[in-house]
Design a protein around this nucleic acid. Structure first.
Lengths: 104, 104
DNA sequence: GAAACACTTGGCAATATTGCCAAATAAAAA
DNA sequence: TTTTTATTTGGCAATATTGCCAAGTGTTTC
């Protein structure tokens, strides 16, 4: 892959779609939780304190984007992180926040 | 900073705010461009092909979040990247995309 | 098979985001 | 000082996101 070509408009749109999937507190919480191992929808609902349908829709956004994958076992559906590098974002997000706190 | 405490709801909300600021194709393009050095608003407008007011508002979102900073010199306002670690996101975003392409 | 369980999907109202135009501001040039 | 250049801000319509309830799907348990 040639690394010095500027990304196209479509590249930025595709990337933004992934960022959007990450840009919600509940979904960030779910990702953090899934970094500890797979979880069923009901466990994530308890943590999120939201309606089950709401949690399910958040998960389907993450799944459609390719960030998580699911597997049905018995009555339950388990989700797990498919692309763990998104976890690296958290450190940087926090450093943006502390940078902003230090100055205006 | 104790690293094993789970982030609070507020932590996730603050992080999501930063992610949201990044979750737009035009703003991602601006960040990529600013990684090459400071740019004035007019240069970014030419690249974005959007109304100047639109570009200015995108930049103020990035500024309010703490991702970029601005400096007025003469007639122009120059923006530069304040927290370069956000550039590391791009590789991971692309790997999410290729992971999704490889499987459903 | 009927009931219970674990989800997903449809629909909709409330809210947030986006992008343009027009108007305001601020510095430089004439 | 008037005009031009560079940018920001206000306002608004179009669009997207969010979260709940209700209804639907697929398993398992009885």
């Amino acid at each position: 892959m040639l690394v010095h070509l500027r990304p196209t408009q479509e590249d930025f749109e595709a990337r933004a779609k992934v960022m959007k999937a990450l840009a919600h507190p509940t979904r960030l919480m779910m990702i953090e939780e899934l970094s500890r191992g797979e979880r069923c929808v009901c466990e994530l609902r308890d943590l999120a304190d939201r309606d089950l349908s709401t949690v399910s829709k958040h998960l389907s956004i993450l799944k459609d984007t390719g960030i998580v994958e699911d597997e049905k076992r018995g009555k339950q559906v388990f989700y797990r992180l498919r692309v763990p590098c998104v976890l690296n974002f958290f450190h940087c997000l926090d450093s943006v926040l502390t940078a902003r706190d230090r100055l205006g």
